[in-house]
Write a protein that binds this DNA or RNA. Structure first.
Lengths: 133, 133
DNA sequence: GTTCGTGCAAACGGTTTGCAACAAT
DNA sequence: ATTGTTGCAAACCGTTTGCACGAAC
């Protein structure tokens, strides 16, 4: 597990320090879409001496190196997403929780109609409530 | 013009003070997707004595009353959008500029496949470059 | 011993808030 | 007189930065 993470970091050209491994171990495997502060909270529970600055530096480095994506879809915070494939997001309006919607679950058509734009990436952002039965 | 705006504010249950009318006159007619600071810059050029706090309070009030939408799609800033209809956004990766994509230009299908979710709203966020010819 | 990563604390920038003054009715 | 609105400045919060210490090779 730790070895897998170290391999991944190396593959992305990131020197695997102990802190970076700890951050990667959490952020690459979570289903959540954590903010920097959530990462800090989680990681420092098994790695108590890590500082906030290191969390921010590390996450930004990961984004730079293409290991993570930053999402700017919710109010007031940036969240991180280890899923690099094309996919979409559902935001629960009550809890603010973000859930992945896999790319094949939704289809966006007519993209070709956008003459004059070179689309490098797109996503659908959905908002709503979770139905209770 | 000013009268139209006053009528709109009244319709939305907003008392039309001079400052609010000035903000509304700009923000309801612009094609841009301005941040609070851009609104401040524009509005204070014809209304020099308005304060930043009033801009923020006013914009937040407008959002609360349903006259504007807040968009959280770009890095580091919240922008406001007077277009209340379902539509999508293109973000120019070079300039950061946001352009409307009208609702009928893109189609999202399979929404019905999302069992268990009650979608109240959705939008497609596209990123890319403007083709130069 | 040079390079790179970390931790701290201060700085930063956008946004909000508390409060006193003011306008409207 | 009461109610609601504004302006100021300070507070706030998430994030970045400068710098000195420490680890690794």
């Amino acid at each position: 597990m730790k070895d897998d993470v170290i391999k991944i970091l190396n593959d992305y050209g990131i020197q695997p320090s102990a802190q970076r491994v700890a951050v990667a171990e959490y952020v690459l495997t979570t289903e959540e879409h954590p903010s920097a502060d959530q990462v800090f909270a989680k990681v420092s529970s098994n790695f108590p001496m890590i500082s906030r600055a290191t969390i921010y530096n590390t996450l930004n480095l990961f984004v730079e190196k293409g290991l993570l994506r930053e999402l700017h879809i919710a109010a007031g915070r940036v969240v991180f997403d280890p899923n690099l494939q094309r996919h979409h997001h559902f935001i629960d309006e009550e809890s603010g929780e973000i859930t992945d919607i896999h790319g094949h679950q939704l289809e966006v058509s007519n993209l070709a109609s956008l003459k004059g734009l070179e689309i490098s990436d797109y996503q659908v952002v959905l908002r709503g409530k979770i139905k209770k039965k």
